[in-house]
Design a protein around this nucleic acid. Structure first.
Lengths: 141, 141
DNA sequence: AACAATATTAGAATGGATCTAAAATATCTC
DNA sequence: GAGATATTTTAGATCCATTCTAATATTGTT
């Protein structure tokens, strides 16, 4: 039995408090959708549709606001795989991605699995924020 | 003395012919801008402005068409580093990128320098198209 | 030169994301 | 808990990169 099972409502609330964000109804509902069922990659439109499907109507502007605030607070990580659309990853630990180009589906690669070596010397005054790796898959010819 | 020096006009023309694209005035001019001075990363807007500055007026639509055709023909590679804007890389050989987030500037890492190991097993019917690596730099704190 | 095929273009349209400013809600102070 | 204050939410407008449209121009072929 996990903590989430034991206290189904306390967990989202704590998450917001720890991030220094007021626990409003909208943010709580979106938190449950985002973090309720394991790691996910969602776009703003997807999350907005999910909320609507769950009978919780939130404006699209609030979905965008929330995703951006969560990203700034370190609760989400933005993943850029194609120009023109942002995905948000609920897994903020160090890891990489596999993209199936044809379907747009995205899955995680734990950092232990894939390693990057030989990062070149970084100019003075700068440091590595992170290294994004996307393994792009296509149908075998 | 390089081939380009010896035959300044033949090289862009050959490049288009090899790609199976009609050598129109616009495509020749854009080819010279793109491939005339070593490896570059350009956005459509940048290239459009450059053409204008060089007294060669091309419509923005043509710049977009050309960049997309060149990418399909393998003359350019699209690099996605931030949602909402596309960059086109004149270096189509296997290599990676360093992004200085603050300035948006992008530089190449030759593939010999940086290595990725431990790519997970690929599902049946799919194969790796390529692996994109972006080393993101931020100001040191 | 004449014809068909392809390219270019201005401007409209699209679509994702952000902005605005007014109404709603949360938090703080007493 | 009431009232004052700060923060959020929202609908709709707006922005901006990119694509589309369909009319005109250019290119390649005979």
């Amino acid at each position: 039995m996990t903590i989430a099972d034991a206290r189904p409502f306390a967990e989202p609330l704590d998450r917001l408090k720890r991030a220094g964000l007021r626990p409003t109804r909208q943010r709580l509902a979106l938190t449950r959708l985002l973090f309720g069922r394991g790691d996910r990659h969602v776009s703003a439109e997807q999350l907005h549709a999910e909320a609507k499907a769950a009978r919780f109507v939130v404006s699209l502007a609030t979905v965008y606001n929330t995703l951006n605030q969560f990203t700034r607070a370190g609760l989400l990580r933005e993943v850029v795989v194609e120009a023109g659309r942002s995905y948000f990853d609920t897994n903020t630990s160090d890891h990489h991605h596999v993209l199936t180009v044809a379907t747009g589906s995205l899955t995680d690669i734990p950092v232990g699995t894939l390693a990057v070596s030989g990062v070149p010397k970084i100019p003075e005054g700068l440091e590595v924020e992170r290294i994004d790796v996307v393994v792009r898959l296509r149908p075998r010819v």
